[in-house]
Structures are given as structure tokens and as C-alpha cells.
Amino acid sequence: GGTTSGLGELPSGWEQRFTPEGRAYFVDHNTRTTTWVDPRRQQ
């Protein structure tokens, strides 16, 4: 941990993952979708 950059926890059902290249993306298990956009930035 320690790399949350002050955004806090992800919404319920979300998970942060990384591509083999090390790029972060976000998985929404509620809708079984993925996005490059941090859901915390859409609030």
C-alpha cells in the first residue's frame, strides 16, 4: 500500500489491477466491465 495518492478506497465491487506493462486499470465486478478511468475521479 501507500500509493493511494489520497483518493481513498475504491467503490464497493471495484478492483485495481495492472497490465503486464504496469499500467493501472479498474475492474467493476458489479457490471463485469473494465475501465482506464479511476472511478474515484468520477464522483
Rank of each mutant, 00 (worst) to 15 (best):
G8F: 09
T33W: 03
N30I: 10
H29S: 06
G13V: 00
P20A: 12
T3G: 08
T4L: 10
Y25T: 02
G6A: 13
V27E: 05
G13P: 01
P39V: 01
W36S: 06
D38Q: 05
W14T: 04
Q43H: 06
Q42S: 13
E15W: 00
Q42N: 13
F26K: 01
T31C: 07
G1S: 14
Q43E: 15
E15Q: 11
Y25F: 08
G2T: 14
S12N: 12
H29I: 10
R40N: 05
F26I: 01
T35D: 02
Y25V: 03
F18M: 14
L10N: 02
P20C: 08
E15S: 07
T34H: 03
Q42H: 15
F26S: 01
W36T: 05
L10H: 04
E21V: 05
T19M: 05
L10T: 03
W14Q: 02
P20D: 14
T3V: 12
L10P: 02
Q42M: 11
L7C: 13
T34Q: 04
F26C: 01
D28L: 00
R17K: 15
T35C: 05
R32C: 08
W14M: 01
R32N: 12
R41G: 13
P11Q: 02
T4V: 11
P11S: 03
A24M: 14
T3S: 12
R23K: 15
H29C: 05
G6W: 08
E21Q: 10
T31I: 04
G8Y: 07
R32G: 07
G13E: 03
E21D: 15
F18Y: 13
R17W: 09
T3K: 14
G22V: 00
P20Q: 11
L10K: 03
A24Q: 10
R17C: 14
V37N: 12
R17A: 12
R32I: 05
E21T: 09
G2P: 06
P20E: 12
G8L: 09
W36V: 04
G6N: 14
S12F: 07
W14E: 03
T33V: 09
P11M: 02
P11C: 01
E9H: 03
